[in-house]
Structure formats: structure tokens, C-alpha cells
Design a protein around this nucleic acid. Sequence first.
DNA 1: CAAGCCTGCATGACGTGTCATCTATTCCGG
DNA 2: CCGGAATAGATGACACGTCATGCAGGCTTG
Lengths: 166, 166
Amino acid sequence: MMWAMGVDWLTAEEQRAWRAYISLHRELTARLNRQLQADSQLSLPDYEVLVHLSEAPGGRMRPYELAKALQWEQSRLSHQLSRMQRRGLVGREECTGDGRGAFMVLTACGLETIHAAAPSHAAKVRELFFDALTPDHVAAIAEISHQGLAGLTPVEPVCDGTGESD
Amino acid sequence: MMWAMGVDWLTAEEQRAWRAYISLHRELTARLNRQLQADSQLSLPDYEVLVHLSEAPGGRMRPYELAKALQWEQSRLSHQLSRMQRRGLVGREECTGDGRGAFMVLTACGLETIHAAAPSHAAKVRELFFDALTPDHVAAIAEISHQGLAGLTPVEPVCDGTGESD
DNA sequence: CAAGCCTGCATGACGTGTCATCTATTCCGG
DNA sequence: CCGGAATAGATGACACGTCATGCAGGCTTG
């Protein structure tokens, strides 16, 4: 039995970097989550939805638009919206003109909540992320994030597999 | 009602970078997850646990050691280990010498699974992460990850054979 | 050595995320 | 107009994560 390593085919340095990256990201989002939760009873996903909705004209958006804007899977969004509706953060309106769809609208409560939550959350993001990095690092991350890692970023649909090599 | 923005106190550019970063990370881990799942019926968390266990002498570790190495919350690990035990990937042994604790051991199945999963997973990580970045970007991320974002990140001991202070 | 605290770990409740599946509509071609 | 495909969305099952809590076994101190 060969315990002792050799399991991963990344170099030791790559492993260290990769694991550190994963841990750091988790730690970062965990802190943001906790702060949001403590200050505003919101989760990070809640916040993202509310921000997008509040930026939309009329505070209303079709779920599919929201999904595209957030780059979320439709079903994730659907669940999320249900939960948020239960809590009164968003409301559902029928979509005249397209019988299958709907409109999600920001409620007064949702608007109030996001307005109350935004300042401290943004401050926290700035504190933990932007202020903690050198301008060079910020630039690097921005560049990487915008171009997508393997040019593959745009999730696309996992199309029918016509032998799609992975 | 003031729809139309102003909710976030990050600059437009910061928002773009931040959101892109979040989306990119999600997409990256989602792909790794899917690949692992398809190839080896493992999740990323499963994989991480198996790797650490397989690197431990004897393939055995105390849960609290594992938690520290992975930088996971204890309760998360506990749940994870239960699930993995149910699937036969790990086993539990009593810890003589400390009545409250236990040892988690890699089972034959777990060992086989991780050995089978590692090559393609490592290749995928390399493909999506390391190969997709310029050396400069890799260096930047490594630097950021290792030093932690706000110096607040208790990214303590990254247990590494060759002792190295932080 | 007894009282109390700290540790190691499990567990139940609940929010979150994904996948597969299902429905209802709309769209499009014949 | 009919039938099939694509679209919009919901939903149930189940994995994952966190929090709060419980608890037994070690440790410390008087």
C-alpha cells in the first residue's frame, strides 16, 4: 500500500496554491455571509438577487432574465425565489403577454432590506477584498475574471454530447 | 421610489470585477464537480477528504486533524465523513488512548477510488486553472492565496511535509 | 479526588445547490 | 390548423454547509 502521496498530479507548489485558493475563497464568502446574516438576515445569494432586482427598471424582472444576469441555473433561482417570496422579500406577478412566465418584483420590504444591507456589505467586500489586495492584484483578478479562465467561462448549456471531449 | 442603482457602494468597475470573480469561481468548481461526479462518483469535498487521508501515514487521521488540514468546520467534516462512511469510502476506528476521539481510515475502496479519480481530476484542475492562466496570474493568485486576503484569514498550517513557517 | 472546564465529535434543523423530471405555453413548419 | 420542438418555470429528491446543541471523555485546580 502506498500511502504517502503521489495521488495528485499537480506539483507540490500547485497543490499548495490550489488548496490555498479554495480555502481562501471559502473563508471570504463565509465571512461575507456571516456579516450579511448578522446585519440584515440575508444570505449572499439573497443579496445578489435583491441587488439585481433593485437595479432593474421598476424593480421587476423575468426569472429567466435574472438567471442570465446572475449566471445562475434556472432551478437554483427558482428555489431561491420561492424562499425569498416566503420571506416577503420578493413578489410574483403574472406576465400578461407570456402565459408561462412571471415577473418577480421587489417588495417594499425587499427594497428596504437591500438598502439597509448594502452599505455595510459593500464596505465588507471592500475591506476583505479590494483593500486587502494591491492594485496589481486587483487588476490581475479583474482581468482573469473577465476573460474567464479557459475562455470557457460562459457556462453555456451542456449541449447534447456529440462526443464532446472534455 | 428610486429604482435604478445606487444600492451598492462599490464602483461600477469594482462591482463588475467582484461579480465576475464570484461567477467564475462558481463555474470553475461546478465543472470540477461535474467531472469528478461523472468520472468517479465523487464530489469535490469527497475528493479533498480522500486526498488528505491518502497522504496521511497509514491512511488514518483523527477527524480534528483532518478538519485543521482541510480548514473545515468540525461539523461539516463530521457530516461529510458520515456520508462517506455510508458509501464505504472511509471507515471509523476507535481511538485507544483517547476515549472520545476516533480515527478515520481510508478503506480499500476509498483508496482505489482516489487513485482512479486523481489523474483526470488533476488534469482538469490544470486545464481549467493553471493552464488557463499566465504564469504571472498564477503567481499573483498563489501570492494572494498564501498570504490571505486581509491578513485576517487564519489560513494557518497548510500541513506540508517540509516544515515551513508562515 | 471532586467540580468544572475544555476537547472531540455527533446530531437535528434548516438554508442552499444540483439534477432529473414535469407542466404549460409559445413558436414554427407543413 | 396540427404536431413537434423549444421556452419558462416549478418541483421533489438528495447532497452539501452552518448553526446550535448535546454529550462523553480528558484536564486542571483546589
